[in-house]
Design a protein around this nucleic acid. Structure first.
Lengths: 185, 185
DNA sequence: CCAATATACATCGGGTTCGAGGTATAAGCT
DNA sequence: AGCTTATACCTCGAACCCGATGTATATTGG
């Protein structure tokens, strides 16, 4: 998740670590702050992997900084991760939101739509949080208001996202144009 | 998060590891499946901490199992974690949902309301996911439909939760009785 | 009767993350 | 001149998590 965010932000423009830190913190830090001890080692191993280059530059404001540039390999890695996200990237909200933040860097609308459809499929499968003797429990079955709330909120949030997903997929994949040589009607 | 779920499920009834696994998977596994290699070490260290006891019993269906019982210390630990959750438990959705699933085990409605109010305060503080030159960007400012969606969804979900939070806090903490006799009609 | 499946538990290695601490530089305040 | 704050980077140990792998038992299906 962190690595994806780093690749994504650097795709737009070169940044130094500190700047990257503030951007990552804005994107995900509200929910899950990123520690220096996580960010800098990540930068280091990504540089070692050849995905980015580090350049010493004098600090504009204070201490000298190390500007980070995405390499061609880095851009390919970003695209690979966007095109073929793991199941966790689809199901975990934090990861999914990160992915969504950079999905525009896939240049094929069809590929973008394919990723959205995976999320759609995930949200459409019925699930329950609690089971009693193997039977899923509905919100109304709980005396507990907190578990009721849990299910209510989960339902409301997924409805909102489903609506957006369906609309966006449609706009990315307009119906097959009714051309003169239709492969399929 | 995992430890909280274990404490919470065992608060209701003794369970063996495998049963625990299915329950934890139902609660959080949809989003973030829990691996055996995570669960069993967690059980082990929680037993070492004195929060639970393990008992060998013959398997009802197949292999012998180790029944897990929450100790008094374990119950106190659960209550401590519910009463004084860390910031991450409040901000991270996965953790927060887990907490919510077991919040009924705090027996004081006031304490429950206090926890809900922390989440409320967190959701009420204005935040932005993206900044341009230090200025937060609104959804309309993006050409990018994915970032637009990101903000739209985040907004919708937090509205749903806010409504629930406010209603539930009110029901847990009825308005101060205006009379000289605080009994309340 | 054999294979597959579900139950049930466990360990190990590799990798990631966090928290705490440390080192500098420059600006602004007192 | 000294203090604080913001910028900017880095390391280390402890903890944690995941995936792979391994062991064993009972039921079900072919």
């Amino acid at each position: 998740m962190l690595e994806l965010a780093i690749l994504g932000f650097l795709r737009d423009q070169p940044l130094h670590g500190y700047d990257l830190r503030t951007r990552v913190a804005a994107l995900m830090g509200h929910v899950r702050p990123v520690a220096d001890g996580t960010l800098y080692p990540a930068i280091k191993r990504m540089a070692a992997a050849g995905w980015l280059l580090r350049n010493h530059e004098p600090g504009l404001v204070a201490a000298p900084r190390r500007m980070l540039y995405l390499t061609v390999e880095g851009r390919q890695e970003l695209e690979r991760r966007l095109r073929e996200p793991g199941e966790l990237d689809i199901s975990d909200e934090n990861r999914w939101f990160t992915l969504l933040a950079f999905l525009r860097h896939l240049d094929e609308p069809k590929e973008q739509a394919a990723v959205l459809r995976r999320r759609l499929a995930f949200l459409e499968e019925p699930t329950s949080f609690f089971y009693e003797d193997g039977r899923p429990m509905a919100a109304e079955e709980f005396a507990d208001p907190f578990r009721q709330g849990l299910l209510t909120i989960a339902h409301a949030t997924s409805e909102a996202e489903l609506a957006w997903l369906r609309a966006t997929i449609d706009s990315l994949e307009p119906l097959e144009p009714p051309g003169p040589h239709p492969e399929r009607p």
